[in-house]
Design a protein around this nucleic acid. Structure first.
Length: 280
DNA sequence: ATACCGACCTGTCAGC
DNA sequence: TGCTGACAGGTCGGTA
């Protein structure tokens, strides 16, 4: 479910709700699939630690954890860097829920962090494609942030690649955070078909794609992401950007620009939507 | 390198 | 009502 705008929306809520709070104890469910680090390591790393910062990198949520001691806390809160990181990837159906301890336990709850404030952070994920891990001293998934990179560096990333441009956009080792929805929406705005080889995209089209990717992501963040079937943020609020989708999940419907029926093809195993007239 | 495919999982919906 | 198959925001590993 969550691509960059959805994860960014969730992180903004978490910043408001849990920064400066402390993890008192952790409960971890019995399913091993969502755990990328051993359960014991996750529990040991979280328990007793203060959450000094929450941020997003690509589609990952990163909780910066600091010691709970007073002097250490002062130092950590100054740098915004913790001594350890709790990292959550939501996969397709993962959710972070902030709730009270009495709230009903959702099916597929895999981890609960009980906070000193009396609330709980719960990680819920029916399909179990999401992953939870802990790291000491830095977490870097590779790739660059599309909203932080220059146009020149963006073009450099893709130049000469023989892979379809959409596959390149989805490759998190290049640009991180763009998923299936925003790849389709960006390519539509840039007028480029998903199957075009990156090497066959002109410099001018790359400029257009760079601006489209950033505009789409920024607009989506402003609207709280896209709620296609079940995405909600950490407060349970739905996003609104699905109202602005121009091609995603609109197969057979008229293109909003020219009226031609939107087509759907499968590329690298993913549904890909485009307007055969507007996109070359 | 690259591209295609299945695997990993559960839930939902359409069609019969 | 219930079965079957297709499909779903993501990523990884194998194979040609």
């Amino acid at each position: 479910m969550p691509e960059l705008p959805e994860v960014e929306t969730i992180v903004r809520v978490l910043e408001q709700r849990v920064v400066r709070d402390r993890v008192e104890s952790v409960w971890i469910g019995s399913r091993p699939q969502p755990l990328k680090s051993p359960a014991a390591a996750i529990a040991r790393t979280l328990e007793g630690k203060r959450i000094v910062d929450v941020h997003r990198t690509g589609k990952y949520i990163v909780f910066e954890l600091g010691p709970s001691g007073h002097a250490e806390r002062k130092r950590s809160s100054k740098t915004g860097k913790g001594t350890a990181q709790w990292v959550v990837h939501l996969g397709m159906t993962g959710r972070i829920v902030i709730c009270s301890p009495g709230a009903e336990l959702a099916k597929h709850t895999h981890l609960i962090a009980r906070l000193a404030s009396g609330r709980e952070l719960r990680f819920v994920d029916p399909r179990m494609f999401g992953r939870v891990s802990v790291h000491a001293g830095g977490f870097d998934p590779g790739g660059v942030e599309p909203l932080e990179i220059s146009e020149r560096s963006f073009v450099e990333l893709f130049r000469g690649r023989k892979t379809p441009i959409k596959s390149a956009l989805l490759n998190q080792k290049l640009v991180r955070g763009v998923g299936n929805i925003y790849a389709d929406e960006s390519l539509f705005r840039a007028g480029i078909r998903p199957r075009r080889r990156a090497a066959a995209v002109t410099r001018q089209e790359f400029g257009s794609l760079y601006r489209s990717v950033r505009a789409v992501l920024r607009e989506a963040i402003k609207l709280g992401g896209s709620s296609v079937s079940d995405y909600v943020d950490a407060d349970g609020e739905e996003g609104l950007f699905q109202m602005r989708h121009r091609v995603y999940a609109r197969e057979g419907e008229p293109c909003l620009v020219c009226g031609t029926a939107i087509r759907r093809v499968v590329l690298a195993g993913r549904s890909s939507h485009f307007c055969p007239k507007c996109q070359k």
